[in-house]
Design a protein around this nucleic acid. Structure first.
Length: 508
RNA sequence: GGUCCGUUCGUCUAGCUGGCCCAGGACGCUAGGUUUUCAUCCUAGAAAUCAGGGGUUCGAAUCCCCUACGGACUACCA
């Protein structure tokens, strides 16, 4: 029986969403859309101490920018709400109680301090302490204390937590769509806290309760959750929800581009690429972390890059629109090992998307750069220029270095070109050419081209020699699109002016 | 330390049901070509003893075992 696909992306609002998280959201989204299912945004804010203002808005804003939309969630509502765990607080206690009544959980009165003490003792002995089937018998909990004592402690208002009573001698099987069958022995697992002394559930409890209540069919999340998956499977069993337990898929990690290890917040700005979808400013420190959006990446490029970090279609196609990804995506083709972010390939992807945009699109995006410099130009003319240079740019901002000569005369000239091309009689010929350009009427590309070429040929000159020097005085360097197109775009007067300026300033 | 997961060119990866793989593609790199220049584009090339070692087999990157290395987790954080 096929059940309706319902997946959730469940971030914790503890800061900006890192691209690993974005990829998780993307894969959930692709899976949901492919199966005509429902995509849900649930905010997991059970840790009140780690709440960061603005984080929730950031998550929604950045995913929206990328085109990852939700059918249900904090911001759009839905029949399974509320979608913020802090708003669901009253709901969890009864489930913890149910587990206690059924013998699957117990009260524990050990203070964080006393547990810390015990940990230290263990560490001194080079052992690791775990609250589990071997140690719970000697700790302060409702399994070791008399019933009246437990009741008394609770009535007196002593803080306590509710822990899961992990059964012993059981093989717990997690069937993962990416890893296959993962088996863990229950004796090795600890009695995780399900309900905290502050009245909030932990991730583990809230996660299972909410996934069940929200009828989640597939849990697609990061590999860091794999170790706690057996606990989650046990919880479904304890609640008697095994029949509707979601299917699991644990995604490989996104690694640092250099060395090893999980990609972290600091790596991005250290290595020159963003780790966040959009820029984020820390509300406490004011520290700014760069984002893809502000760095000039197109959302469709970011989607394409992220989709290929850990997944591939099995064909040689590399460029995928969101629609194509929805069609081609499959959990089975997700790789098992972690992927390093490749900055060069990311740039290449952006370049591919940049050239797909029309000159007008690019002009609109680039215009602010000119406005900032006090340069005024019509959108139409800028569109023509952008069309001319778009194959030379990886990012919108690259258009700057490819077009500055359309707006201003060169202030310096490339030494290399001077050294290689500028000869004694160059100035003389350029002067002649400026005179020729002055006579071109109408001043358009082909005509200007023909006249100058004619001059070069009539005088038996070297084509490359003259053309490169002409480019040098017009552009300032050996770069740019067709020279005569540039010349007609800047206009006769300006072109002649630049030639004169070049002749007087370039000396050998 | 313990548990779990992973390991194919520098990077992302194809390869999953063993022979078509002395390992294919992409990015990057190198060389050549196109272009009056740069970029684009085209062509070619270097680049993985498939982590290492044992098996199984006529035959293994592909199946099994061991080792090494890497990573994640090991909180009243998610």
């Amino acid at each position: 029986m096929e059940r309706k696909v319902r997946v959730r992306f469940a971030p914790s609002p503890t800061g900006p969403l890192h691209i690993g998280g974005v990829r998780t959201a993307l894969y959930n989204y692709l899976f949901a859309r492919q199966h005509g299912g429902t995509m849900i945004l649930r905010i997991e804010d059970t840790d009140q101490g780690r709440f960061v203002p603005g984080a929730e808005e950031y998550i929604i804003d950045s995913l929206t920018w990328l085109g990852i939309n939700f059918d249900e969630g904090v911001h759009v509502g839905g029949p399974f709400g509320p979608y913020r765990q802090s708003d669901r607080k009253p709901l969890y206690r009864q489930y913890a109680d149910q587990l206690i009544n059924d013998g699957w959980a117990y009260y524990a009165f050990d203070t964080p301090e006393s547990l810390e003490e015990i940990r230290k003792v263990y560490e001194a002995d080079k052992k690791a302490f775990q609250y589990d089937c071997n140690t719970r018998g000697s700790l302060r909990n409702s399994l070791t204390l008399a019933a009246e004592e437990v009741q008394k402690l609770i009535n007196e208002g002593n803080p306590y937590v509710i822990r899961f009573k992990m059964p012993d001698n059981e093989e717990i099987v997690v069937n993962d769509h990416i890893r296959g069958r993962v088996v863990v022995h229950s004796n090795l697992l600890d009695d995780k806290v399900l309900f905290k002394s502050d009245g909030m559930p932990t991730y583990h409890l809230a996660n299972i309760v909410d996934d069940h209540l929200m009828e989640i069919s597939h849990v697609i999340r990061g590999e860091e959750w794999l170790p706690s998956a057996p606990l989650h499977v046990m919880l479904y069993k304890a609640f008697g929800w095994e029949a509707t337990m979601p299917e699991f898929a644990h995604l490989p990690l996104l690694l640092k581009p250099d060395g090893n290890g999980k990609l972290s917040k600091r790596d991005g700005d250290r290595l020159g690429f963003p780790v966040f979808p959009t820029q984020w400013q820390d509300p406490k420190t004011g520290e700014i972390s760069s984002g893809y959006r502000e760095s000039g990446y197109f959302p469709e490029a970011v989607i394409n890059i992220l989709a290929f970090l850990g997944w591939n279609p099995g064909t040689t196609q590399e460029m995928f629109t969101m629609e194509e990804l929805i069609q081609a995506f499959s959990i089975e083709r997700i790789s098992k090992s972690g992927a390093k972010f490749d900055l060069e390939k990311a740039k290449w992807f952006n370049q591919q998307y940049l050239r797909q945009h029309s000159g007008l699109d690019l002009a609109k995006a680039f215009m602010p750069y000119l406005t900032e410099k006090g340069i005024e130009i019509s959108e139409d003319k800028l569109a023509i220029i952008c069309d001319l240079v778009k194959e030379r740019a990886h990012f919108i901002k690259d258009i700057q270095s490819q077009t500055h000569f359309f707006f201003e005369a060169p202030i310096q000239y490339d030494e290399q070109v001077i050294k290689k091309r500028w000869k004694e009689d160059t100035a003389k010929h350029l002067d002649a050419i400026s005179a020729i350009l002055n006579t071109v009427e109408p001043f358009e590309t082909t005509l200007a081209h023909d006249k100058v070429i004619a001059y070069i040929q009539e005088n038996g000159l070297n084509m490359g020699q003259i053309m490169n020097c002409l480019r040098l005085v017009i552009v300032g360097a050996g770069i740019g699109p067709d020279l005569f197109t540039i010349i007609t775009l800047i206009g006769k007067e300006e072109a002649v002016k630049r030639i004169k300026k070049g002749i007087s300033e370039i000396k050998i």
